[in-house]
Simulated assay, not measured.
Amino acid sequence: MLKALLFDLDGTLAETDSVHHPTWADLLKPYGYSVDWAFFQERLSGRLNPDIVAELLPDLSEQEGLAMVEAKEADFRERAAALEPLPGLVDFIGWAKGRGLETALVTNAPRENVLAVVRALGLDEVFEPVILADEVGVGKPDPAPYLAALDALGVRAGEALAFEDSPSGIASAVAAGVPTVGVASTHDPGKLGSLGVALVVHDFSDPELEAFVEAR
């Protein structure tokens, strides 16, 4: 029996890649990187900031890397005020809550970004618990964040359903044994469908979604 819905943040609650992309592009341009959309999706989207900096800018000191990450995320938070929920999200969450389902957040994003995004979307009081990769100690695609969410909620993997938009997020949820819905807000639906998801939707207004959840 389904008891909990576990949501990713970036690209799942809102289409944030269109904000992250120019933020990274501006930051990396002085270092010789031309961050087009393909580069962003392949090398940046869904990954942890320290891993990105270590790979792309290995000559930076730890302190310089941290300063870069902090500057990038501060810029993102300023731009995030204009974000809107993915179509159908608010109604879908209300529908799920009305059926007694728990709603949790599982994300690689830093806490300040989480607060900025959920505030911009008007979803401040919706998600409990909020599982942060920073606090778990390892991020997606490792299954640890989803395992931590299951533990916090006291539910088994088969009693939860995850919503993820990126290959790394899907890998995390699937590895934790959580049935997963791929949200094709920015990635190709066919690619997401090949990663072990139970269903692919473009957004939360998809007519298949509620029937799929009710059947769990």
Score class of each variant (00 low, 15 high):
M1W: 11
F40K: 04
P167H: 14
L9W: 06
P143W: 04
P58V: 15
L2N: 01
E73N: 10
D8F: 02
A184W: 04
Q41D: 07
A25F: 12
A149N: 07
L115R: 13
L123T: 03
R111Q: 15
S61E: 04
K72S: 04
Y33S: 06
A82S: 14
D17W: 13
L2I: 15
A184R: 10
S205E: 06
E210G: 00
L147T: 07
P50K: 11
E55C: 09
V201L: 04
E128P: 00
G98Y: 12
E42I: 02
I170G: 03
D142N: 15
L86S: 03
V181H: 05
L2H: 07
D124E: 15
H21F: 13
F39V: 05
A54S: 12
S168W: 02
L56F: 02
L150P: 00
L83W: 08
G88L: 08
A54L: 09
G154N: 11
A14C: 14
K97F: 06
A215F: 01
T103R: 09
A171Q: 14
L192N: 02
S205M: 00
V138P: 03
V181C: 08
S172H: 09
G32A: 08
E55G: 08
L161F: 00
P58K: 14
M68L: 14
L6N: 11
T186A: 14
M1D: 10
A211V: 06
F212R: 13
L105P: 01
R111M: 14
A74C: 11
L44A: 11
V126R: 08
D91M: 02
R119H: 13
L147N: 03
P189N: 11
V90L: 05
R119P: 00
L56N: 02
F163Q: 02
V69F: 09
L147D: 03
W24N: 07
K97D: 12
T186G: 02
V136E: 06
P145W: 14
V178T: 10
A162Q: 01
L195V: 03
R111D: 12
D26T: 15
A211E: 10
L115F: 07
N108R: 08
G32R: 05
D134C: 04
S45Y: 01
R99H: 09
V201Y: 01
F76P: 01
V106N: 10
L28F: 07
